[in-house]
Design a protein around this nucleic acid. Structure first.
Lengths: 341, 341
DNA sequence: TTGTACGCGTTATCAA
DNA sequence: TTGATAACGCGTACAA
């Protein structure tokens, strides 16, 4: 904030009061046409820029929202931000971006900073290490509008925008069942991570609904990365000997990549010997040698809907708290063997 | 900004003046130990959060910087933001993110909004359609610290952080020359885009330095995308008949992808018949069938250095204006035929 | 050690 | 139609 022109200075130049200048510049109707013209011209020539800091102090409104995300690097969150930005731009809000780097401590300090800046509301996707719900609860109880997205905490008085991982996992499994596959393996994520649990449950329930027996030995922990997928799949192929599963549902795409490597190294073909599906539509999934069937999360839409809900909540005290569930989209590619031709 | 506790309210509860509360909360030494303790406790119990809006109004300093980027979606800019964020976090600044969507009009309105918010400085990568240097010049002349990154405007009183495209293009061409290739084609970008010009000049100068004749017919405009690369390369292959160039330098990776497709469709092999290099390290370049040799831009570093320079400029009025040139890194992969084995 | 007055730039309110 | 005053929340400067 350097040498900025103020209303008072314009007023002095023009020999009138600051109040009149303010009115003229804000298009109030109770200003003389002529004075208004003079003011507008003078303001332009002096390079006047309204001071939103002062405006915010009196109006108790900053037209600013804070976004807290656990990382910026990967495509998912940049797409989310893109969606958020589209909304904030249209509705004349500015966007504070903060990064918790998956650390709860840093998340707390970000939120405190945003509170101090008096943001009108906060959009947040929780860090992996966030472990104290009461922290959020206390802030929400102060009346600061909050909307969770993707990694949500439900039932603490804030709206959520999320995707239904359970349903998607079930659907994609049913897709494989519908194609006639009978024996299934699952590469699962860590036991205590919510999305991993949901995806596993979706897988299991799909089998149960179609009365397909579950072979517990064919459920292996892969974690979320390629290396884990490789070793988990290798174990499964060892175990089952010459009876490998006909289809594999992986907890995410990187795990599926690892599994594909293991399968190919065994001299088996995808999808003819083993079909496989992933989760999350990694940027690579479309362009690898055997393109991977996967579940695409509507990242841009998540951002858009979350921002809309937040600003609606800001604008209207009576906006209901809601959980908005977006649909994942199943992207069929070659790896599941369900494409025609 | 809802029901927020103020210094005055804490003071009333405690039967003292707001000033004492302020002092206690700001760790001034001229406060009684006991009153300080009482104040701190009361502030906590009342859920006090300092109001930075008020603070900024009086101090004329917001600890806020604005970032203007032409798009968020692609990896380059999210990496840049990641680098910026690392610095702003450490130095206790908040970051306003705005997106010009490659439109100059939108860029201008973003900058005006940021000025109104009284950001302490602005980081900007210009939109493709930005065409009025005097707009930036006027703002810089008001004293608002400005740092350009990636798409820079030099010599108008602001620091720049950029990569040396000319040098990198020359280097990667020389790399091919060093490998013994004698005939070269270039897929160039639009004539009036700065980076396209620099990359073309680097290519030409490398040939000139090594006294390799330039065949103008083998320089075709591809634009920046795959389709353009495909048609440009197709034209070159037509023209040159059974004397195709031994190596191709493409203006960027997508153009190279298109060219690779054209080459393969002609039944030629990469790199054995034609070697090719790209520019910008697209995420796909590493994982396509014949991984593409390319030039990687240090996006994270660009963000980091730009943010550092900006905050240094904010903190210190005498910080010199500088152009910081970062080095691109040449990533050797199979497509140039220079890998051992 | 604590308190009072004032100003940062703006707008709402009431008076002229 | 215009102007004067007060207030938003805070910290500096000075006084007690």
């Amino acid at each position: 904030m350097g040498s900025n022109v103020t209303l008072k200075e314009i007023a002095q130049e023009l020999g009138m009061s600051a109040m009149t200048v303010s009115r003229a510049l804000n298009n109030k109707d109770n200003v003389d046409k002529n004075t208004k013209k003079r003011v507008v011209e003078k303001a332009r020539s002096m390079g006047y820029t309204p001071n939103h800091v002062a405006k915010s102090l009196v109006s108790r409104k900053t037209f600013t929202i804070g976004v807290v995300i656990p990382e910026i690097y990967h495509a998912f969150f940049s797409e989310v931000i893109s969606g958020i930005e589209e909304v904030t731009y249209k509705r004349n809000y500015q966007l504070f971006l903060t990064n918790s780097a998956e650390k709860f401590e840093r998340e707390k300090s970000s939120i405190h900073a945003l509170q101090s800046k008096r943001v009108d509301g906060i959009l947040i996707s929780c860090a992996e290490t966030s472990n104290d719900i009461s922290f959020y609860k206390n802030i929400i109880d102060t009346g600061l509008p909050f909307v969770f997205f993707d990694r949500c905490i439900e039932n603490i008085g804030a709206s959520c925008v999320t995707v239904n991982d359970y349903n998607s996992s079930k659907e994609v499994t049913e897709h494989l069942i519908g194609h006639g596959y009978k024996t299934f393996a699952h590469l699962r994520g860590p036991e205590d991570v919510a999305i991993a649990q949901k995806r596993k449950k979706g897988f299991l329930d799909a089998l149960a609904d179609h009365e397909i027996p579950v072979n517990e030995q064919l459920i292996e922990e892969s974690g979320f990365n390629e290396k884990g997928g490789y070793s988990a799949m290798s174990r499964i192929l060892e175990l089952s000997g010459n009876e490998p599963p006909r289809a594999v549902v992986a907890v995410n795409d990187p795990a599926a990549f690892g599994a594909m490597k293991a399968i190919k190294e065994k001299g088996l073909s995808i999808p003819d010997d083993i079909a496989i599906v992933g989760f999350s539509d990694d940027i690579r999934s479309e362009i690898i040698q055997t393109p991977l069937t996967t579940v695409r999360q509507p990242a841009f839409q998540i951002g858009k809907r979350a921002a809309q809900k937040l600003i609606d909540t800001i604008d209207n005290k009576d906006e209901p708290i809601a959980t908005i569930e977006l649909k994942n989209e199943i992207v069929i590619r070659q790896s599941c063997g369900c494409l025609p031709g």
